[in-house]
């Protein structure tokens, strides 16, 4: 096996350390008449943890889902690691394998065991050997603290446990970036922390993360940057400390006033 020197130089040339891992340029999207994403520009650096907050209907979930093309966009450009998102087909599937996604409603494969949920991607998408995939899956399940549930079906687990399995499932693909679409919004209050803890430790390990959430505690603890969205626009961005203590825009002041009032 000889390595093709040309391809490795092109690869390194297209990956200068300063290049953002995720970049959105002038992204627009409509749902019918509704302009849900208005000219969004955003760059996320490798290893950066970005929290997206905003009132419901502000387009934050759509933004998150557009990054792995679960939502199409009308125009603009989204790049992951320098490569523009392919429209469809094998190339899109390949790119999605590099982008982990955690959903509000967990979406574990209901007919498969916890272990199978985590091994499915590595085996079927990456062609990993089942024994190796199982080993990887067990170590990831252990990391999020649900390895003792490996043989159960998703419906037998609590919401918090299911969401931690969903994180393990996404990590099993060894993604470049993880997207979290309101990961704790469907959880009972006593289960929110177990999921946030898993996310905080992931952030500490240097994972690039884009997190749509209302959990201010998580933002303060783990985020490098907070992005505030309203009416389909990025209204404000700052460090968590600055954003929560000294929001600049009226829209953000109003929003924070409502959620921090009690």
């Amino acid at each position: 096996m000889t390595r093709d020197p040309q391809s490795s130089t092109t690869a390194s040339a297209s990956h200068p350390p300063t290049q953002p891992l995720v970049s959105l340029k002038n992204v627009n999207k409509h749902f019918g008449e509704l302009h849900v994403l208005k000219d969004i520009n955003l760059e996320v650096a490798r290893g950066e943890v970005v929290v997206v907050i905003g009132p419901s209907g502000s387009g934050k979930s759509t933004l998150c889902r557009a990054i792995n093309r679960l939502e199409t966009i009308d125009n603009g450009e989204i790049r992951i690691d320098g490569k523009e998102l392919p429209a469809e087909g094998k190339a899109l599937a390949k790119l999605r394998a590099d982008v982990g996604m955690v959903f509000q409603s967990f979406n574990l494969f209901a007919h498969k065991s916890i272990l199978e949920n985590v091994t499915l991607g590595p085996v079927k998408v990456k062609g990993m050997k089942p024994t190796a995939a199982k080993e990887l899956a067990m170590s990831l399940l252990k990391r999020v603290g649900v390895d003792n549930q490996a043989q159960k079906l998703p419906a037998q687990l609590s919401g918090g446990q299911q969401q931690r399995v969903a994180i393990a499932r996404a990590l099993a693909m060894q993604p470049k970036v993880m997207l979290f679409d309101e990961p704790t919004s469907a959880l009972d209050p006593e289960m929110i922390n177990e999921v946030l803890d898993a996310m905080v430790s992931l952030a500490k390990e240097g994972m690039t993360m884009i997190v749509v959430t209302h959990e201010m505690g998580f933002a303060r603890k783990a985020a490098d940057r907070v992005i505030f969205m309203a009416d389909g626009q990025i209204v404000e961005q700052a460090t968590p400390e600055e954003f929560f203590t000294n929001p600049k825009s009226d829209r953000a002041k109003d929003f924070l006033g409502k959620i921090l009032a009690h």
């Binding site: 679960l70 982990g100 959903f103 494969f109 991607g121 079927k124 499932r169």
Partner: peptide, 18 residues
């Protein structure tokens, strides 16, 4: 089958047939 099942399958990189 809830839509989320298909979305989760696509999100781990499975194309339509798989």
């Amino acid at each position: 089958v809830p839509l989320g099942q298909a979305e989760a399958a696509r999100a781990i990189g499975l194309s339509f047939l798989p």
